[in-house]
């Protein structure tokens, strides 16, 4: 019934943060979600595989930085997921 990729606490919160900010550094997401590097990477890989997010690795001077962007497919999927949640509440 619900998008299995988004019907998971960390991934739905992750997309919530990205939908309001379009892009966020990996570290900011990690801090805001209170998850470990490994945990976040694993969730991001799943979202990236479905093209909900785009992961960009850049260098700022000599420092590597990972930026996570939400894609238009990700935005659409998140909106549909919210609609599904609303519909479920209305029907139950």
């Amino acid at each position: 019934m619900f998008d299995p990729l988004l019907h998971q606490p960390v991934r739905s919160k992750l997309l919530s943060l990205l939908i309001t900010n379009d892009e966020l550094p990996f570290k900011a997401l990690k801090e805001a979600l209170s998850v470990t590097d490994g945990n976040l990477s694993s969730h991001l890989s799943k979202l990236e595989k479905e093209e909900y997010v785009l992961i960009e690795k850049i260098f700022e001077g000599k420092r590597p930085k990972t930026i996570v962007h939400i894609t238009s497919k990700g935005k659409q999927a998140f909106s549909s997921y919210i609609e599904d949640l609303k519909r479920f509440i209305e029907e139950n």
């Binding site: 606490p9 739905s12 919160k13 919530s16 943060l17 939908i19 309001t20 900010n21 966020l24 900011a28 805001a32 919210i82 949640l85």
Partner: peptide
Amino acid sequence: EIKSHLVDK
């Protein structure tokens, strides 16, 4: 939880 994370950086 989604609502509480819909915040600007």
